[in-house]
């Protein structure tokens, strides 16, 4: 079993938490997420042009880059996280250009060496994935793909082909941190995906509260929360860890008791 598959084999759906690398004291923030009960960590690679992100994560990208966060620094944060938390799966999420700048093979092996389990690249669809995906798989990293409300039955097999780890369902056609999807549409989509794949299906975009998380946990294998956590870092800076721990623990509690 990989770290990722173990996380999705727990008796409760997985809580997947996102923060941006280099935004605040990332090591302390990540530890707080784990202490609060996060099952999978998504670490955002900051990018100058986060086209799929709303204001909260845009601001986190600007803070991280303003603090001088380089690719080497992101990898260092990952490596040290892996040393502190040997069992918690770690996924890098970001945009294509920083991942392919030094060639996809370089990125894949550097990420593997840092103990990364999966990579989500927002702007490489299956149609363009003939370099990064194979490089990741060769390095033993799961390429995690996104499915959206616009991913119809005709496209779904292509999205699933070559993807691993889990399927990330972007539940709103939109950017991160904005509106929330209707529960019924989430249920329908998850059913559709589960019929097409054995991969766990995690649902994200617009999930902010324990109540929402619990509702999604009743139908999906994982719940992804990003902007709400990133906003806490924006608001509380150095004091963010305690707030992150608190929200994560509320989300995790809600998911575990959702039944």
């Amino acid at each position: 079993m990989t770290r990722l598959s173990s996380a999705f084999a727990k008796p409760h759906p997985a809580l997947v938490t996102f923060i941006t690398a280099g935004d605040g004291d990332t090591a302390a923030n990540l530890d707080a997420l784990v202490e609060g009960g996060a099952d999978v960590i998504e670490l955002g690679m900051p990018f100058t042009d986060p086209m799929a992100d709303g204001p909260a994560i845009q601001a986190a990208n600007i803070r991280a880059l303003g603090a001088g966060t380089t690719t080497a620094e992101v990898l260092r944060i990952a490596r040290e996280f892996r040393q502190r938390h040997p069992q918690v799966p770690l996924v890098l999420m970001g945009y294509a250009n920083p991942m392919v700048r030094r060639r996809p093979e370089w990125f894949a092996s550097a990420a593997a060496e840092a103990g990364v389990d999966g990579v989500i690249c927002v702007d490489i669809p299956p149609e363009e994935d003939d370099a990064l995906g194979p490089a990741l798989r060769a390095a033993g990293i799961a390429p995690i793909r996104l499915a959206t409300p616009t991913t119809d039955a005709a496209r779904l097999p292509q999205v699933l082909e070559g993807s691993a780890g889990f399927l990330y369902y972007v539940s709103v056609a939109g950017i991160t941190g904005k509106q929330q999807a209707a529960q019924a549409s989430i249920e329908d989509a998850v059913k559709r995906f589960k019929a097409a794949t054995d991969l766990p299906v995690a649902v994200g975009f617009g999930v902010r509260t324990p109540k929402q998380a619990a509702a999604i946990a009743r139908v999906a294998d994982g719940v992804i929360v990003g902007s709400a956590l990133v906003e806490l870092i924006g608001t509380h800076g150095k004091d963010a860890p305690e707030h992150l721990r608190e929200l994560t623990s509320a989300l995790s509690g809600a998911i575990r008791t959702a039944g």
Partner: peptide
Amino acid sequence: RYVAETLMP
């Protein structure tokens, strides 16, 4: 076509 999945279709 390097776009997010939402835009692909």
